[in-house]
């Protein structure tokens, strides 16, 4: 099996520089400092023993910090994927090779994702602290890591799509962060707003509108809290699919559509139906 040359080149360029290990170290330092700081504060208040529910709190904090960092780092890694090539004036040459635009887009995406996956996997030893004290099942940890992978996929696809559409990396980065912010907070606010607008005043149970349920199902913060077993997070649901299925379907389909659109947008010969005027 041959590896796409763009992917090979990107990995070679990315992992050859000192920036990559520095970024991994910084990432671990931030997450590790927060977790160890939290443990220290808990231990200082109650020295001598450690409760399992405290380790659960650590797990939640660790996972939320990681989610925030995933949302912060992923668009930064991908928002210059294509626009960076354009700015370095290397894109035209790349497009005249026999590589397909789909191959270029997917390779760019994979190289960025691989680095993000490395960052996330590098934090696994920190999760051992949680296991040390109990209170969290391995399936929950696996669920959280699977959740990160799906989330990284869409966030990265957003970055690549913005990078394909916008000529400047700066504009692409700002727009990518904006879209990630909308997914992270906008869906929550909009869901709440729609809930309040459609709510009928008065006593009695009120069914949460489907659109609100959907918006909460695709909100990464809400979904993560649900994975962590915080079942009271969010309203009652009556969508036929479980929340994680809605999340996975939406993130994977939206990500794939963005990648398809990006490869079509990048293709200089895309208007194949164009009629020539003689």
């Amino acid at each position: 099996m041959s590896v796409n040359p763009v992917l090979l080149k990107e990995l070679r360029q990315r992992f050859r520089t000192v920036k990559s290990p520095l970024l991994v170290s910084l990432y671990l330092l931030v997450i590790g400092a927060l977790v160890l700081g939290f443990i220290y504060l808990r231990w200082r208040d109650m020295p001598g023993y450690y409760r399992p529910d405290t380790s659960r709190e650590i797990f939640i904090i660790l996972s939320m910090v990681q989610l925030f960092l995933v949302g912060f780092v992923t668009p930064g890694l991908t928002a210059g994927a294509i626009s960076g090539e354009r700015e370095r004036q290397t894109l035209n040459v790349l497009l005249t090779t026999r590589l397909t635009t789909r191959g270029i887009i997917v390779s760019k995406m994979l190289s960025s994702i691989s680095f993000m996956v490395l960052l996330v996997l590098a934090t696994l030893p920190l999760y051992n602290i949680v296991f040390l004290y109990g209170g969290i099942s391995p399936s929950q940890v696996l669920g959280v890591f699977g959740f990160y992978m799906v989330t990284v996929f869409l966030f990265a696809a957003v970055g690549v799509a913005c990078s394909t559409y916008f000529k400047r990396t700066g504009v692409s980065t700002v727009t990518s962060y904006g879209i990630v912010f909308i997914l992270g907070l906008g869906t929550l606010l909009l869901g709440g707003f729609i809930y309040e607008v459609l709510r009928v005043p008065g006593p009695g149970p009120y069914q949460t509108p489907l659109i609100t349920q959907f918006l909460l199902d695709i909100n990464p913060v809400v979904v993560m809290m649900r994975i962590l077993g915080e079942n009271g997070f969010g309203p009652e649901r009556n969508i036929g699919l479980p929340y994680w299925a809605v999340y996975i379907l939406f993130y994977v389909i939206a990500g794939l559509l963005l990648l398809l659109w990006s490869s079509s947008k990048l293709n200089p010969s895309r208007n194949k139906g164009l009629r020539f005027r003689m």
């Binding site: 040359p5 090979l8 080149k9 070679r12 360029q13 290397t90 790349l94 090779t97 590589l99």
Partner: peptide, 21 residues
């Protein structure tokens, strides 16, 4: 106007394009 890739050696640069073809 064209640019080159940072962090690639001359032989790797040509190898990349050979692979791309």
């Amino acid at each position: 106007f064209f640019g080159v890739y940072d962090g690639l050696k001359t032989c790797e640069y040509l190898d990349f394009f050979a692979d791309a073809y």
